[in-house]
């Protein structure tokens, strides 16, 4: 079963790694179903504010723009990291991945600050159906980013230890897919939650 094909990029060379990457794509399909359900829930509940805070009262455009900027840039740097991985440059790979994670951490910091701010104003998960669905939807995305950072760190450690091999290349490639996916989800969050909330 272990057919190796040296002409493919490193992460695709062994049959097992090819299967793992396919499995991860299918998993991302499941993640789309998961986030779709959360978005549907949010869109059903967004105007059910129980007479309390509405989206328009809460959201602040500059902060959300900043978060979007951080996360979208991190997707670019993540792409640069994979580009260096293809050129077998472990040092640059690690460096650019660290930049990616720092940008992700910056995003996370702003999101936590945003949540804390809302809670201080009295807008908590227990206030209304709108806020329950807002916190769980954005929180699920934030939890994914958090998990992604921890996961990427453990993989970077493996790259430092073992260098770029078929196994570590596959792992970096997959975390890259995951990271880009979180960016796509954020674009929907940005438009369907924040922009829609601030305009409507």
């Amino acid at each position: 079963m272990e057919q190796t094909n040296k002409e493919l990029p490193l992460e695709y060379q062994t049959h097992q790694d090819r299967m793992t990457i396919l499995a991860f794509w299918i998993f991302l399909g499941a993640e789309i179903a998961l986030f779709s359900t959360l978005f549907a829930t949010y869109l059903v509940l967004e105007h059910r504010t129980a007479g309390m805070f509405s989206a328009k009262q809460l959201f602040e455009a500059p902060k959300v723009m900043m978060m979007t900027f951080l996360l979208l840039t991190s997707s670019f740097t993540c792409g640069v990291a994979i580009w260096y991985m293809r050129r077998n440059n472990a040092k640059q790979l690690i460096g650019w991945m660290l930049v990616t994670l720092l940008l992700g951490a910056g995003f996370l910091y702003m999101e936590i600050a945003e949540f804390t701010h809302y809670v201080h104003e009295g807008a908590t998960i227990q206030t209304s159906a709108f806020l329950s669905s807002f916190f769980v939807l954005t929180g699920t995305h934030g939890a994914h980013v958090t998990l992604g950072i921890c996961w990427a760190l453990s993989i970077l450690y493996q790259v430092m230890k073992n260098g770029i091999t078929t196994t570590t290349a596959r792992k970096v490639f997959i975390i890259g897919l995951y990271w880009h996916f979180l960016d796509v989800v954020w674009i929907f969050l940005f438009t369907l939650v924040y922009v829609k909330g601030m305009v409507g």
């Binding site: 509940l45 504010t49 129980a50 998960i125 206030t127 209304s128 159906a129 709108f130 329950s132 769980v136």
Partner: peptide, 21 residues
């Protein structure tokens, strides 16, 4: 997960009060 949030953390997804459905 939403059920868990409702039951454990007092969220309002499926409740009668506070806009739940």
């Amino acid at each position: 997960a939403l059920m868990t949030f409702d039951r454990l953390f007092g969220a309002h997804f499926f409740t009668m009060a506070s806009g739940g459905m």
